[in-house]
């Protein structure tokens, strides 16, 4: 099920760098009227409401509302003023040609156009300056929560359990010949005697936890180790397994 490759581990881990794709969630600051005298005062009010949330937050500037007729404005100054509010503009999207060129000159990265998440509504109360008197901490963007897959019965030889896009929690033993797989972490509150593959969709932060490590194979994000290579310090012990610096680490608890 998991694309297990030790070759990749060998190729990457010795080099001075690793190139990997990743995706990040960023705020988009939609710029409607950059020339407005209230632009920074209103933005400052909003930032003050949730200073921790906004501090050093990477921001993508959205110029899609601007047209050729929009008066010229100094993009470098805009960036400087945003930094003064502890926002870190990293990219931009849209905008007429002069704006586009100005943004590139200011060191911003052009981003592909996309659909914005509804972050704006989370911080809406700030739009009303009167309501802004009592600071309400704006909640961070709600992650889409997927409850962990909970298994309370022993996982038997020949059975396979896959926790898609979530964690797997097993409160019973996992037998030899069984396979437990998760996109997230795997917790086994019992003996782990089968195969356990965590982070199978590539999450290198995934971990495996078990009460007694007697597994046939363990793997995190495709890096694996077979039981033959388990040391006596971890065998039949409570163990945590995770990736660090491209290596699979097994730590007795």
């Amino acid at each position: 099920m998991a694309a297990v490759s030790s070759a990749r581990q060998g190729a990457d881990r010795d080099g001075p760098f690793q190139l990997r794709g990743n995706s990040f969630t960023m705020m988009v600051l939609k710029v409607n009227d950059p020339a407005s005298p209230d632009f920074f005062t209103q933005l400052a009010v909003k930032v003050r409401q949730a200073p921790n949330f906004f501090r050093n937050a990477p921001v993508v500037l959205d110029f899609e509302e601007l047209t050729e007729d929009t008066p010229r404005f100094d993009i470098a100054a805009l960036v400087t003023n945003l930094r003064a509010l502890y926002l870190l503009p990293v990219g931009f999207r849209g905008g007429p040609r002069p704006v586009h060129e100005g943004a590139l000159a200011a060191g911003l990265t052009p981003m592909p156009a996309g659909r914005a998440a509804k972050l704006e509504s989370a911080a809406t109360p700030a739009a009303d300056p009167q309501a802004g008197a009592a600071p309400i901490p704006a909640p961070p963007p709600e992650p889409i929560y997927r409850p962990a897959l909970l298994v309370t019965e022993p996982v038997r030889s020949g059975q396979q359990i896959y926790a898609e896009k979530t964690d797997l929690v097993i409160t019973a033993p996992v037998s030899p010949g069984a396979e437990v797989v998760a996109d997230g972490n795997i917790h086994v509150y019992g003996a782990l005697r089968g195969r356990a593959l965590a982070g199978v969709s590539g999450d290198t932060n995934a971990r495996i936890f078990c009460h007694s490590l007697e597994a046939e194979v363990v793997s995190v994000a495709g890096l694996y180790r077979v039981s033959e290579d388990f040391g006596n310090d971890v065998l039949k012990k409570p163990v945590q397994i995770f990736l660090r610096d491209g290596y699979l680490h097994m730590e007795p608890q």
Partner: peptide, 11 residues
């Protein structure tokens, strides 16, 4: 091991 397998089938 085979008994374990059959327990899984039963379940």
């Amino acid at each position: 091991r085979d008994s374990d397998r059959i327990l899984g089938v039963l379940a």
